[in-house]
Design a binder for these strands. Structure first.
Lengths: 233, 233
DNA sequence: ATAAAAACGTGTTATATAGCACAAAGGTAA
DNA sequence: TTACCTTTGTGCTATATAACACGTTTTTAT
C-alpha cells in the first residue's frame, strides 16, 4: 500500500467550506490542532452513547451513520461522502451520540477538537452560518426520510435508496454503475426492510430490466421508471 | 374576546434565548421589525412548497408541523409549544418549505423577517450558536424518531406519542391529564398509524388501566408501564 | 488447498396492520 | 327542533412484509 502523508495545504483544500471563512490566524490555529486518523473497511468510527469530542471531516472513503433499534434491526440514517463533515451534531446539542458511524470502505478522517471549533465560532460568525446551513439541510433530509420510510412500500423505498446512492456517491465511467458496492444487508438497512426482501425486490427490479445486478455491482438502467416507483411509493 | 396588545418588553421576555445575546442596538433593530399574527384553531400557518420569509416564534398556542405523504396520509413531524421558534430551517437551507404548519389551538405568533435575522447573525456569533444548538437538538430528535416510527410496533408508537405529548405540553392540575386534546386522527398521524388503529389501541390501553379516556381528554395512569411498552416497541 | 464463515437466494408460513363497511355519538347550523 | 356532517367506535377481510428454514455461492482465514 502506497501511503502518502497529506500536507497541510492539501487538507485545507479538501475542506474549503469550513476553511474559507477563516482569517489567517484562525487557519493557523486549526492547522495546529487537527489530527488524521485512518479506519479499515467496516471499522467502527464512533458508537452510540459515546461522548463526542471531535468534528470529523471525511477526507477519503465512505461512511454510514446508523442506529441500532429494537430487535437487532439496524437503520442507516445517512451516509457521508468525502469532504463532508459529521459527528458534530451531538456535541452542539450537548448530548452523547445517539447514532453510530462505521466505514463502508477504508477511510481517512480529519479530526478537529470541538473545543477549537467552538472557540472559532465565537469569533467568526460566517463559520456559524456554515454549520447552520449544514444542519438545516440535514434536518430537511431527515424529515423527508421519516415520511418516505414510513409511508412508501418496499419497492418505493428500495428505488429511492438506489437513486439516493447514485446522487450521493455517483456512478462509474459507464454513467450507470453505482460507485458504491453495498451488501444486501446494508441496502436493506438503508431502506427499512429485511435482507431477504431487499434481495427479492432487487431481483424483481432486475427482471423488470430497471437495473442489472452483478454481485454487489448495480447498474441503473431505467432511471425514469425507478423515479416513478420511488415517487408513487 | 379580550384582546390585549403585547408590549415590546413582554415580547422580549417571551423570547429570551434569542433576545438575550443581543446588544441594545440589535434589540432595538429587532423590536422595530417584528409583527404579530394570530391564527384560528386548525388554521394553516404555512404550506409545503411556499417560500419561507419569516422566523416565527410561537407566543401562545400549540402548533403541528406535518407533511402529507403518499395516498393522502399525513405525518406529524414535530409539534411546537409556546416560546419555541420554527419556520427557519427551510430558509437557512435555501429551500422552500418541505413541511406544512397548522394551529392545534388559537395561536399568537411573532414574525421576524429572516433577512433581519441573517443580518444579526453576521454580527453576533452568540446568536449563531443559538440556532446551531436548536437545529442540532431537532436533528437528533428527528433521527430518533425515524427509527421509532419504522421499527416499533403500534402499541410502542402510541405509547411513545402519549409520553411525548406529556413531555412537550405538560399536564393539567391533576398531574396526569394531558394538556392537549387531540383528535384520534391527529394522534394517529403523530404515531404513524391509521385512525382506526389509534382508536383501538387507545381503547386497549384504557382497558389495561394504563390510561383513562374521556373523549379527547387522556389521563396517563401507569406511566411506567407506558414507558416499558414504548421502549420494547 | 481446505475448512469455516459470511453472504446470497428462494420458497413457505405467520402476522401485524391497513382497508373497508357500517353504526353510534357528538357537535354544528338552519 | 330537525337535519347534517364530523368524529368515534367496532367487526371483518385483505395484504404487505416479516420470520423462518434451508440450500447455494462467495469470501475469508488457516
Amino acid at each position: 500500500m502506497v501511503k502518502k502523508e497529506l500536507s497541510e495545504t492539501e487538507i485545507a483544500e479538501s475542506i474549503p467550506d469550513l476553511w474559507q471563512p477563516l482569517t489567517d490566524a484562525q487557519k493557523d490555529y486549526l492547522a495546529q490542532n487537527f489530527t488524521i486518523q485512518k479506519y479499515k473497511k467496516n471499522e467502527t468510527i464512533y458508537c452510540e452513547g459515546e461522548t463526542p469530542k471531535h468534528l470529523m471531516c471525511l477526507l477519503k472513503g465512505k461512511v454510514k451513520i446508523y442506529k441500532d433499534g429494537v430487535g437487532g434491526r439496524s437503520q442507516i440514517i445517512r451516509v457521508i461522502k468525502d469532504k463532508e463533515y459529521f459527528a458534530y451534531r451531538a456535541y452542539f446539542a450537548n448530548e452523547n451520540f445517539v447514532t453510530a458511524a462505521a466505514a463502508f470502505e477504508p477511510c481517512t478522517i480529519c479530526l478537529i477538537p470541538m473545543t477549537c471549533i467552538v472557540k472559532l465560532l465565537e469569533e467568526n460568525a460566517q463559520l456559524g452560518l456554515f454549520f447552520i446551513r449544514q444542519l438545516s439541510i440535514d434536518l430537511g433530509i431527515s424529515d423527508e426520510r421519516t415520511v418516505s420510510l414510513t409511508q412508501k412500500h418496499i419497492r418505493g423505498r428500495l428505488a429511492e435508496s438506489l437513486l439516493f446512492l447514485k446522487d450521493t456517491y455517483g456512478v462509474e465511467e459507464d454513467q450507470c454503475t453505482l460507485s458504491i458496492y453495498l451488501s444486501r444487508e446494508d441496502l436493506a438497512n438503508l431502506s427499512n426492510m429485511t435482507t431477504s426482501n431487499a434481495i427479492r425486490t432487487l431481483s424483481n427490479f432486475a427482471s423488470e430490466k430497471l437495473i442489472i445486478i452483478d454481485g454487489r455491482k448495480i447498474k441503473l438502467i431505467d432511471e425514469e421508471k425507478l423515479k416513478k416507483i420511488s415517487k408513487i411509493g
